[in-house]
Design a protein around this nucleic acid. Structure first.
Length: 220
DNA sequence: ACCCAGGTGGCCC
DNA sequence: GGGCCACATGGG
């Protein structure tokens, strides 16, 4: 089994899935709302919640900061954990407008400072913070998720329960400092995970199966 | 009838 | 620092 350099991995994923335009043409508010709603939820269910918010003209943080919490819960219910997420969305929105004149003002802070600040807000963990930094603030930040950990462990033999920041540093150090690449690479990991690398993998069609420890040990 | 989804925080030792 | 748990809907 040959080692698979990160740039070659990206090339192979890109060849299979094409360029993935995540959160295309949406506002920063929408991206952040989606990032919170998608925690431990399928994107299909998140789309329903976002659609409800849009219909109610509540798909922005200013409105969320003032809306009645029961209404907010009702709109986002399809995305699951709706009471918790409603409280977190409200908390995030209120934090912004009590500390800044606008969301953009906060997002313009330096990356390190912004990350610490986001992590101090209840409901914003590392993956959500990094998704906001990458897709809403537009700053290069490699986003780790459960698929990334699983795929890395199967291709590179890393611990499946590796610390978030350890894997983030490992991968960040191997790719060029290019915003679009950061955005697309994370999306490619998720697509690979969703398509082939679940807990019960579908290895036969996987574009990198010949580099995968799981495949080389079990599938055949 | 299970099992899972683009996690997070709280509590315990 | 690690191990468990609650949080909840919709789809396979």
């Amino acid at each position: 089994m040959k080692a698979l350099p990160i740039p070659v991995l990206y090339a192979k994923l890109r060849e299979r899935f094409g360029y993935l335009d995540w959160w295309p043409g949406e506002t920063r508010d929408e991206i952040i709302i989606g990032a919170i709603l998608t925690q431990q939820a399928s994107w299909k269910n998140v789309e329903k919640a976002i659609s409800n918010l849009r219909s109610a003209k509540c798909l922005n943080l200013k409105k969320i900061s003032t809306i009645n919490v029961n209404s907010l819960e009702r709109f986002i219910r399809p995305s699951g954990f709706y009471k918790q997420k409603a409280a977190r969305l409200k908390g995030f929105a209120r934090y912004i407008f009590s500390n800044y004149s606008s969301l953009d003002q906060m997002l313009s802070n330096d990356t390190g400072e912004l990350r610490e600040e986001l992590l101090s807000i209840k409901g914003i963990g590392k993956e959500t913070a990094d998704s906001i930094i990458l897709y809403a603030a537009g700053k290069p930040m490699f986003v780790i998720d459960s698929y990334t950990k699983r795929i890395a462990s199967r291709i590179y033999g890393s611990d499946p329960d590796i610390e978030y920041d350890e894997l983030r540093f490992d991968i960040s150090g191997t790719i060029p400092d290019d915003l679009e690449l950061y955005k697309d690479f994370h999306a490619q990991f998720v697509e690979l995970g969703k398509a082939y690398c679940k807990t019960k993998p579908l290895c036969n069609e996987c574009p990198v199966k010949s580099y995968c420890r799981y495949y080389s040990k079990t599938a055949r």
